[in-house]
């Protein structure tokens, strides 16, 4: 009986993602996925830079000289933001796994803390790099 009821019941559905208002922890969640994907795509670039920086004194100097370009420093800052954002949001997920901040208020608050912390760190590092 229960199965029949579920099948025939017409529930209101809204799967149009542009009309769904995503709550703040949801925004953090999708940013976590996007930054993760971005970091994965940047992996070969950073492995290559790491390799070059360790290979020879000349290649080390080449990697170091890349920092002379403002554009490269901006890209680096973008990468650092991705890393910090993914890192801090990840710590929040670890805390949630430990049942810390699982309630609605706690989840909203910790999301704000993550965004505030990542933005502050970015501004500090940005001032240092640029």
């Amino acid at each position: 009986m229960a199965d029949v009821a579920i099948k025939t019941k017409k529930r209101p559905k809204n799967l149009d993602i542009w009309t769904i208002r995503l709550p703040l922890p949801g925004v953090l969640s999708i940013i976590h996925r996007l930054t993760g994907a971005g970091l994965f795509l940047l992996l070969p670039v950073f492995l290559w830079l790491f390799e070059r920086s360790l290979a020879t004194p000349e290649s080390f100097a080449e990697v170091k000289a890349l920092g002379d370009h403002l554009v490269i420093r901006l890209i680096l800052l973008g990468f650092i933001w991705f890393y910090i954002q993914h890192f801090l949001a990840g710590l929040r997920y670890l805390l949630i796994d430990l049942h810390k901040g699982v309630d609605l208020e706690g989840a909203r608050f910790s999301t704000k803390v993550v965004f505030a912390a990542s933005t502050t760190l970015m501004l500090v590092i940005g001032a240092f790099i640029l």
């Binding site: 996925r33 993760g36 994907a37 970091l39 994965f40 992996l43």
Partner: peptide
């Protein structure tokens, strides 16, 4: 970590 994450995507 990247493998598990990208696999999920």
């Amino acid at each position: 970590h990247a493998w598990i994450g990208v696999r999920d995507i």
